[in-house]
Design a protein around this nucleic acid. Structure first.
Lengths: 105, 105
DNA sequence: TTGACATGCAACCATATGGTTGCATAATGA
DNA sequence: TCATTATGCAACCATATGGTTGCATGTCAA
């Protein structure tokens, strides 16, 4: 799970996910055309996305096709964001009250 | 938005959010008791959470109370995760087919 | 007023991170 | 076969990051 958060921390990697979202199954070369960075730079980012299992690769001859795997993102939502979401209104209310108290003092 | 992703990337910072989730409005000192790290180390992490607006502070005398702000997390869900969620089943199906093709070849 | 407490600021350090270049390997197609 | 194409691996570099320590500042309470 930590790998997923770390992988999502870099804007270039989120951009790669966006590119695969627009068109799934792209090769490294395809993705490089959209990124202003060396091929090896892009490959490194993709490697981290693979470790986090946000991207799954399928070899086809000498081409490496990259596919989006939505499962880890779903898990982040279910196990982590959903938790905060549930108490969202209460947290906001607590915060509002604390700010009010501060203004009174 | 990038600040939020970066803030969430570190496990210690996610732990701090968890601590505030359990008990909102804690001071730096309170939070330090639960973290095996120097006070300044914790303060640095909290500073990043503040920049990302995941945590909002309220001064009360010499004490700094930390409150969870659920808004950025909600935004990540709405603007980012929700997007991938929508196409989740389709992405999985595309991936499954690609893996099948690989096995055939 | 003064000592203790809660926090901030700044310097410093080791390691992680993001990027590059150069060369190696393997598949394709003429 | 052989040039081309697609990718991998490794070394290297600059900067970011996560942590520390030491000292400064401001507030509380006796």
């Amino acid at each position: 799970m930590n790998n997923v958060f770390k992988a999502l921390a870099d804007p270039h990697r989120r951009e790669l996910l966006d590119l695969l979202y627009k068109e799934n199954g792209q090769t490294l070369g395809d993705l490089c055309k959209c990124m202003s960075m060396s091929r090896q730079g892009v490959a490194k980012h993709l490697a981290l996305l693979e470790v986090a299992q946000l991207v799954v690769v399928v070899w086809q001859g000498r081409e490496k096709l990259h596919y989006l795997n939505p499962v880890p993102i779903q898990q982040i939502h279910d196990r982590w964001i959903g938790k905060f979401e549930g108490e969202r209104l209460q947290a906001l209310e607590t915060l509002r009250k604390a700010l009010d108290d501060q203004n009174d003092a």
